[in-house]
Design a protein around this nucleic acid. Structure first.
Length: 410
DNA sequence: TGTCCACTGGAAGGGAGGGCTT
DNA sequence: AAGCCCTCCCTTCCAGTGGACA
């Protein structure tokens, strides 16, 4: 048989025993090391639901990768297993994706509507109508509904706490069904922005997930590695290194698992039969760069343009910029590319967004008489990111464009 | 001590794009 | 078809401000 171009890669033995899904953060394993206590605690609170009563509302706090989502999904699986769970509906929503009051009510409602034609449309109705539809639907049966709102702070910061207020008081309007909420947030302070009534009702119970330390991360890695690889593929020393690296990043288990998976993929591609420190280091920089490039790629055109402005300035040695300078460059680039320019007010907002994405550093600084403005700096590798930016059709005209070096007027 | 710069960032609102209701 | 509603992206308007300088 003729050898195809894929042959060498197919015959290379896969390092992964079953499939690499086991190393994806979305995978929920049968046990979550160092979270057993929290699972117990939540089980105790939520067990009420199995008796047909409404459990307390719960707020869960913890930085990214501390297992909040994993625990909550784990509990979802446990509810599925429980016999008495037919009267319990457990639904998970991520408020970063479902991020408007309308959309939240709509997607909760649609979980209880099987008939496709009766489903609540994604737009067109008033929010009040959707709320009423939801309420009626819920109250058709005696049941306990547990709604998990992941990244709950996202919906508060965008829309205020009206939605939460509505969801918390829905029980007053229900006769058969009962609703309780589980909010998840990585911002400990977000409750400060809530109406006191909402705040006290929402946080009947509060749980804080601490970051994992290096040993705990090691246990998690070892647990998964054991299932993902054959013995000897991932030496303990390498796992310790990964654990240490992830511990530095505020104990992010997601990071740790990504590192392990990417390291293994790199090793596999190189035809090595076990992981080494070198793979880990390479994986680390690969992940970092990939994350940045992915973020840049998915930016809207205007934001890309603004980022490009910052990079072009960086290229000519202009590393610290003010909003005004960015805006001047921006106007210039708009002319060059035929993009219709936004106002400076809007551009400031987009700069702040870039800052939040970690693509630029922007902090407000006062220059005394010279005014008060943002000081903006790129925080991404210029060459790699420019390459990605220039792939955008709209920015094609700006390809290879250089700024003129400004001689400062005295 | 006060002035004054170059913005910052909140508020309000317009209008396009989605789609329901009557 | 006319009248609503919700969301997103923007614009307009503007009071507020940290700190170097006079």
């Amino acid at each position: 048989m003729e050898e195809s171009i894929f042959q060498p890669y197919l015959s290379a033995k896969s390092l992964f025993k079953i499939d690499r899904e086991i190393l994806r953060p979305a995978y929920i394993p049968e046990r979550l090391p160092h979270r057993e206590g929290y699972i117990d605690q939540l089980a105790q609170i939520l067990a009420t639901a199995l008796r047909g009563e409404r459990p307390s509302n719960i707020l869960i706090f913890g930085k990214t990768g501390t297992g909040k989502t994993a625990v909550v999904k784990y509990i979802e699986n446990e509810f599925r297993k429980a016999d008495a769970a037919r009267m319990v509906s457990y639904l998970y929503l991520n408020c970063e994706i479902v991020d408007t009051p309308y959309a939240v009510l709509q997607s909760i409602g649609n979980r209880f509507i099987e008939n496709f034609h009766q489903r609540i449309p994604f737009t067109g109705l008033s929010t009040d109508r959707v709320y009423n539809l939801l309420r009626e639907k819920l109250d058709e049966e005696k049941r306990v509904v547990i709604i998990v709102l992941d990244e709950i702070d996202k919906i508060i910061s965008k829309n205020g706490d009206d939605l939460l207020y509505q969801l918390l008081k829905i029980n007053d309007d229900l006769t058969k069904a009962r609703v309780s909420l589980i909010g998840i947030s990585n911002d400990l302070k977000f409750t400060e922005y809530l109406d006191p009534r909402v705040k006290s009702r929402l946080a009947d119970e509060k749980v804080v997930f601490p970051p994992y330390n290096a040993e705990e991360l090691f246990d998690i890695l070892a647990d998964r590695a054991h299932r993902a690889f054959d013995n000897g593929t991932s030496p303990d020393a390498v796992l310790h290194l990964i654990a240490a690296l992830a511990a530095q990043e505020h104990g992010d288990a997601r990071r740790a698992l990504d590192l392990l998976r990417v390291s293994a993929e790199l090793a596999e591609r190189q035809g090595d039969d076990h992981l080494s420190d070198e793979h880990v280091q390479k994986a680390k920089s690969k992940i970092e760069l990939d994350t940045v490039l992915e973020a840049v790629k998915s930016l809207p055109t205007q934001s890309k343009l603004i980022l490009l402005c910052v990079l072009l300035n960086e290229e000519i040695g202009n590393t610290k910029l003010t909003t005004g300078e960015v805006y001047t460059t921006y106007r210039e680039l708009c002319r060059k590319t035929g993009v219709s320019p936004l106002t400076q007010r809007r551009v400031t907002d987009l700069i702040s967004e870039l800052d939040m994405l970690g693509l630029v550093h922007a902090r407000v600084k006062s220059f005394g008489r010279a005014g008060r403005t943002k000081e903006i700096q790129a925080s991404v590798p210029v060459v790699d990111v420019k390459k990605v930016l220039e792939k955008d059709e709209v920015l094609a005209e700006a390809r290879g464009y250089r700024l003129k070096v400004q001689t400062t007027l005295l």
